[in-house]
Design a binder for these strands. Sequence first.
DNA 1: CGTGACGTTGAAGAAGGTCAACCAATGTGG
DNA 2: CCACATTGGTTGACCTTCTTCAACGTCACG
Lengths: 255, 255
Amino acid sequence: MPQYPQLNLQRFVDTLTSHSILSQEEQETILNLPGHAAQVQANRDVVRLDEVVEHACLIVDGVVGRFDQNIDGLRQITALHIPGDMANLHSVVFPKATSALQALSTTTILRVPQAAIRSAARAHPAIAEALWRYCMVDAAILAKWVVNVGRRDAKTRMAHLLCEMAMRYKAGVVAQRVTFDLPLTQAHLADATGLTSVHVNRVLKILREGGLATVRSRTVSILDWEALSELGEFNANYLHTDLKPEDRVRIVEAA
Amino acid sequence: MPQYPQLNLQRFVDTLTSHSILSQEEQETILNLPGHAAQVQANRDVVRLDEVVEHACLIVDGVVGRFDQNIDGLRQITALHIPGDMANLHSVVFPKATSALQALSTTTILRVPQAAIRSAARAHPAIAEALWRYCMVDAAILAKWVVNVGRRDAKTRMAHLLCEMAMRYKAGVVAQRVTFDLPLTQAHLADATGLTSVHVNRVLKILREGGLATVRSRTVSILDWEALSELGEFNANYLHTDLKPEDRVRIVEAA
DNA sequence: CGTGACGTTGAAGAAGGTCAACCAATGTGG
DNA sequence: CCACATTGGTTGACCTTCTTCAACGTCACG
């Protein structure tokens, strides 16, 4: 299946071009990046802590979490990566992993050699710039998570997370309803929100009984987008999706 | 005072070269960046939310915080920037601010035009690379803050923050003691740790009475570095300071 | 059909928040 | 130079949220 990488890289290019301006040639350079697919079982590391990484991981299917933990082994997820995301693009500039990446469900990834990404970036400064910008969107999400975990109560936290994931999955809102696949356990949601799984369970019950959303182990159904996003104090700006064309950026002049 | 920018930019170059490899010429290019100094009073915005920024801010003196808040106006600091830090370097690739920057004490900043930074990056790919890497260190700190706020109790959180700031101030450990200037109020510490100022006060009392550290409104004295860093579960790796020369990175080949 | 992973629920307890008062230091205008 | 206001720090009493612990349910799978 020679088209396999291209097919999946297209989603990455789509993300890049949603905030950066890339010429046709530059886009094709990215589409032609090599990569080999691999499957990772749930709860297996994609990247181990302190590993020196030689590939960036494009998520093709499934979900991958970036993990850290406190001394008691209490885990905290600092990022969730879904299909189309380049999970550890930052390793292009920092090869040694400062946190582990773990598959949260059976996941298909495309390993793209950093050497190839680097030479693409070297050949096309606009690509380097777009990759940098991509990393900064990740950082903006991270900053929101600090606020979420630091200053919001459990219901609000969970609502915010569900809204964020809905937007990132580009799940369409139809008649206030949104449905998407989120293959996470309640324990994973707990690790992402800084709660216990018991409390996550109670919070989900409240959301369910309030008619806001139902979360089964694989699918999220938001029943009242308006209400849930208000509860979650959710404003999608920080995701930098769907930027108007005039808001997209390019510093490097055209070739 | 024509040497003024250079003097302060030197600290920024030092930070860059602590994880990136830059030639003499590249370093000088950064040192020769233009910039004009400005004073900002405590609690005044350096950058307003949604403002389209034309300058990056090098902190010369004082402390600046990156602020976000929940719907009730409860504030959360997502980053603290101290002298030598380029507070909003990411605005080079994302000019529109997604969070406000506010001075926490009377602060002197050096505003460096983005146009100049961009042309330096354009002329020297290694500079672009080093700036990208700098942003990724910021992001690594952010990820640690998520863990701190999400999974640690109040004492541990505060201890971790104090250790982090001590390291970033490069305050030397002398006979287990460390002292440095941290011009923050307890309310600021609360906003950084996701606690209330009342509880910050109680936690600081515990640290004081345990002989671990004293925090006055302007100076932090860590009395027992060993004990405080253990309590705070602090491991400095993520700060990427003092990398061994062979761990520093350069992708772009030498000119 | 047993075993393990995941979800659900209740009861009790702890960590931290809220409210309110008061103190000390500093600054300001008369 | 004093009256007063303001800001930041301190403390106590009470209350809420979330955690902890423990039990049990349910579904999938070997």
